[in-house]
Computed example of a mutant assay.
Amino acid sequence: MTTRILAAGDHFVENRLLVDALRREVPGDVDIRELTLPWPTVPFGRVGEVDEASDVEAELIEALKGVEICVTQMAPLTRRVLDACPDLKLFCVSRGGPVNANLEAATKAGVAVTFAPGRNAVATAEHTLAMLLAATRRIPQTHADLAGGVWRGDYYMYDKVGPELEGSTVGLVGYGAIGRRVARMLEGFGAEVLVFDPYVDIPGQVGLDELLARSRFLSLHARATPETTRMIGAAQIALMPAGSVLVNCARGSLLDYDALCAALDSGHLFGAALDVFPEEPIPAGSRLLTTPNLVMTPHLAGASKETAVKAAGIVAADVARYVRGEPLAHCANPALATP
């Protein structure tokens, strides 16, 4: 019996990676169709009732005719798609969370949704450390000055230099796959690491207020939930020691960006580094574009070749489990984890 699969890749998790992983992992006869989505050259956004998806509902519906399994990163699994694609039984999202899938509607339709936890943990941890160092050592600003023909000796003045990681306290809000890797890297620098994460049980964990009051550096790694929305605002930033550095390579919803900008404008924070934002792309006129001592990258902390290859392999492995009739390893709607 032939298993019909749609590889709906993009320009990061490319179809060739998905197809290679599927042919390597999935037993039996497979018929793989391909649809290439425009991300990241065309930004993702809200599509129907789901977030962070490519706006390709019509193209996806056409490509899914007679298809049982879809592997993708950015395709939108909406009610419209589910209603139009009755043959679909498995939707594999090659991301750390299936935000582009309507889980409630998928469950009602009998469509299992899987995801790829930990796919970008190494890349994001490395990027986090790079951003922390870039903000602390003024790397983007000094490079821009030199590229513009300006030698700024005043950056060496005591009041303008930042702290060292060795001997400093770094607070991590969130201690999942990424937070744990960041902690190991920081310990290699000789930093003291504090952790706050109410969802994990680890010895030595401290409360959020204590972590903020003791941390010269703060890095956010929590998941986006209603409880974590704007968990770091003006009151929390005020608890941090003067001259601290804040990094967010997790989710834009975790942070009050107006409060962050105010703390940078006032000098309470020495610097900050951001890879995620409340609105992406950043709109023209945003305060973020004029706030001093702020390093920004366009939501690419997880961007590495290894991330894309790992993502393809993780979803292909769950497709193989499905075909063999085994429980799915990373099912977001557990009631459907067993085919």
Rank of each mutant, 00 (worst) to 15 (best):
E227L: 00
R23V: 03
D154I: 06
A317I: 00
I32W: 02
L294C: 04
K160M: 15
L90P: 10
M157G: 11
L133Q: 09
V81T: 05
T136D: 12
A135T: 03
I61N: 09
T225S: 08
E52L: 13
G96C: 06
S219D: 10
E57H: 07
V93N: 13
E52M: 15
Q141M: 04
A311W: 02
C249N: 02
V150K: 14
V245C: 04
R287I: 05
V309W: 06
L132I: 05
I69N: 04
V13F: 01
R16M: 09
P241N: 02
L17N: 09
H221G: 06
H127P: 01
I232F: 05
A125D: 03
E34L: 10
V99E: 15
V161H: 11
M74K: 14
A317E: 05
P327C: 03
A301Q: 04
T291M: 08
E306F: 03
R251M: 13
H330D: 05
V319W: 04
T338A: 11
D51M: 10
I178R: 01
S266C: 13
P278V: 02
A75M: 09
M74S: 14
C249S: 13
T114M: 07
I32M: 03
I139T: 12
A101L: 07
M185I: 15
L186H: 12
H221S: 07
D31E: 15
E164H: 12
G48I: 00
G271E: 01
E326T: 02
V247Q: 00
L77F: 11
A234E: 13
L269H: 01
T225P: 07
F189H: 11
G171Y: 06
E192Y: 08
I237G: 02
A8T: 02
A335W: 00
A222F: 06
G110C: 08
Y175S: 11
E14P: 05
F277Q: 01
E164I: 08
A317F: 03
V182T: 09
V67W: 10
G118K: 06
T36L: 15
A335P: 11
D83G: 10
H299M: 10
L336N: 02
D20G: 04
T124S: 13
V67P: 13
R321A: 08
H143D: 14
K305I: 12
G9Y: 00
V67Y: 12
T107M: 12
R184S: 15
K108W: 08
A263F: 07
I232R: 01
L165H: 12
T72L: 13
A191S: 15
A135H: 04
F270R: 10
T291W: 05
N293F: 05
L172C: 09
T228R: 05
I178M: 03
H127K: 06
L35Y: 09
E326I: 01
G28N: 10
V19F: 03
V93E: 09
T128A: 11
V309P: 06
F217L: 07
I314F: 05
N15Q: 01
E166M: 12
R24M: 07
A316I: 01
G66N: 08
A273T: 00
S215Q: 07
K89M: 08
H127A: 14
K305T: 14
E227W: 00
P40A: 08
F115W: 02
A273W: 00
A262E: 14
A235D: 13
R216G: 15
P283D: 11
I237H: 04
K310A: 06
V81I: 09
V193T: 15
V200P: 13
P327Q: 06
